[in-house]
Design a protein around this nucleic acid. Structure first.
Length: 494
RNA sequence: GGUUCCUUGGCCGAGUGGCUAGGCAGCGGUCUGCAAAACCGUGUACGGCGGUUCGACUCCGCCAGGAACCUCCA
């Protein structure tokens, strides 16, 4: 299916586009940092997981067998690095809401799944949870300790960044060096049990009131946040794997720490290509929970938020996100979403029109060229906006053929149909939402509307414009979209 | 303060050392009883100032404005 073009991917660690070569021919190991499930999913999550969904779909479509691991962080994510007060997000939320921690986790995980399903984000191959991998995380701590890159203090275990940096390079991913970090890191209060403020927790002793805790030889406690991804990626993808993805905001410290952990425990780096999606901004500022300027996906779908002029469907949001390159920021605005909504509608109409097109003896269109351009765009570091731009050339072609200005042979037509289906539905992961809505059509409604529109045609034939316009106006007021055609009419439920 | 990055036409958003991005909106036309849809046509765009070059929106420098990370974040 895919052209012989090579897939090129921007590797954060080299800051260059590189030709993608999997560790094992034909197979790809992909790990993406999943959400910390302590609150509702928002637009930023949509961006991240749609980006990697596109990658997943495209690689699969390119013929790779992909194992896609995306975790759920349900423990160990420190709310605050202030030593003794260290408490993880889940358990804090649980106390606030008087729920079992696992109840909180379940609740927000359900929402996350529901939202991702709506956005047509495919489920990963494996979705491991941090709380289910305490043993693996402890084993990793042991090996880091054994290799001398961690130390125990007061029941907690910390990663010794300075020691690590003597042998390896801490900061290579984010482009920092330890000296700068030393100068610029916030100094913790005097009672720190860490050797250095930039050391990070591998195991954290639980305070008495802390609910989520597991026994270990160091203390009853819980694992540090950075550890879960290292432990779980190793478990499911091996000591080395192809692509690790996540939001740009995770580059430092999270991913930097992951590199340090893997290297410290196994003597070599685990990840070959680091891929980071950029942020969604609102009024030029990052949309984030901590900034309290985020819009949840449920709010977007329902239009129930003060900055929203209307509801935006999941596919509008997906299309909006795909219209920008994943490494650029995109600024949220009603105008931009509305433009995407219209554009998507035009694309989907063309997909429908494609089914009605009649073939000819000869083609005046070049389907192969169109296909090549679309695939080449995605091969070039997943350039979805370019791919979509070319897709709109296809839309123009389809409309021109329908209008009789261009012609297409039967074999080109079937080629074009299968290309559009594959590209729009399977790779870009778009769905025709109107098709679902038309499910609301039933035989009675269909018969009634058809009848009215036939009466309108008769009225038109008799030049009875008042009646014709009345039928048209009142039906559209009810949400029936009418198109007059040469043959008569078409309609759909808006 | 340190590190990295961004600044494109009314809006969104690609990209390139010289050749049409694309979408939305607008304008003119075709079609239509009128519209809608569709089609055709249509825009002196690249923050400012210098430099390199035959030629820069694209490379370099400076300036201005903005952002991300340096604390949890997709």
């Amino acid at each position: 299916m895919i052209m012989e073009n090579q897939f090129v991917i921007y590797n954060t660690i080299s800051r260059k586009k590189e030709v993608f070569e999997p560790l094992v021919p034909g197979k790809v190991g992909l790990y993406v940092c999943g959400p910390t499930v302590y609150s509702n999913s928002h637009l930023g999550h949509a961006r991240a997981y749609i980006t990697f969904d596109l990658l997943f779909r495209f690689l699969a479509q390119s013929g790779y067998k992909v194992r896609y691991v995306r975790n759920i962080t349900d423990v160990g994510h420190l709310e605050d690095e202030i030593e003794e007060a260290g408490e993880d997000k889940i358990s804090k939320k649980a106390r606030l809401e008087k729920l079992e921690p696992m109840e909180v986790v379940q609740m927000y995980m359900n929402t996350f799944h529901r939202n991702m399903d709506a956005l047509n984000v495919l489920r990963p191959s494996i979705e491991p949870r941090a709380s289910g991998h305490i043993i693996e995380q402890q084993a990793m701590i042991e090996s880091i300790l054994k290799n001398g890159f961690a130390y125990e203090a007061n029941g907690s275990v910390y990663f010794d960044v300075e020691k690590y940096n003597e042998k390896y390079n801490y900061g290579k991913l984010s482009g920092r060096n330890l000296e700068d970090i030393k100068i610029n890191t916030r100094v913790l209060d005097g009672q720190s049990e860490k050797k250095n403020s930039f050391d990070f927790a591998l195991w954290k002793k639980a305070a008495p009131e802390h609910i989520m805790r597991w026994p270990s030889r160091w203390s009853n406690g819980f694992p540090g946040w950075h550890l879960e991804c290292s432990a779980m990626s190793t478990k499911y993808l091996g000591e080395q794997f192809d692509i690790h993805g996540g939001g740009m905001d995770l580059t430092f410290p999270h991913h930097e720490c992951e590199i340090a952990q893997s290297t410290a425990s196994q003597g070599k780096e685990a990840v070959r290509y680091w891929m980071h999606n950029n942020m969604i901004t609102i009024n030029g500022q990052k949309m984030a929970r901590s900034l309290d300027n985020f819009i949840t996906l449920d709010e977007l779908f329902s239009g129930n938020h003060k900055v929203l002029q209307q509801a935006y469907s999941p596919m509008t949001i997906r299309f909006f996100i795909l219209q920008a390159h994943y490494r650029s920021t995109i600024d949220f605005s009603n105008e931009a979403l509305q433009a995407s909504e219209k554009g998507l509608e035009r694309l989907m109409s063309a997909v429908e029109t494609l089914e009605e097109i009649k073939d000819s003896e000869q083609s005046t269109v070049n389907v192969v060229d169109l296909k090549n351009k679309c695939f080449a765009a995605l091969n070039d570091d997943l350039n979805s906006p370019i791919a979509i731009a070319h897709l709109f050339e296809g839309v123009k072609l389809i409309n021109s053929i329908k209008a009789g200005n261009e012609r297409i042979t039967a074999s080109d037509l079937s080629d074009l149909k299968s290309f559009f289906r594959t590209f729009v539905f399977d790779i870009l992961g778009l769905e025709d939402e109107r098709a679902n809505k038309d499910g609301g059509k039933n035989e009675i409604l269909e018969g009634a509307v058809d009848l009215l529109l036939k009466l309108r045609m008769e009225a038109k034939a008799n030049k009875n414009w008042d009646t014709a316009d009345k039928i048209r106006n009142e039906l559209s007021a009810l949400g029936v979209e009418i198109k007059d055609t040469k043959e008569g009419f078409e309609w759909s439920v808006k």
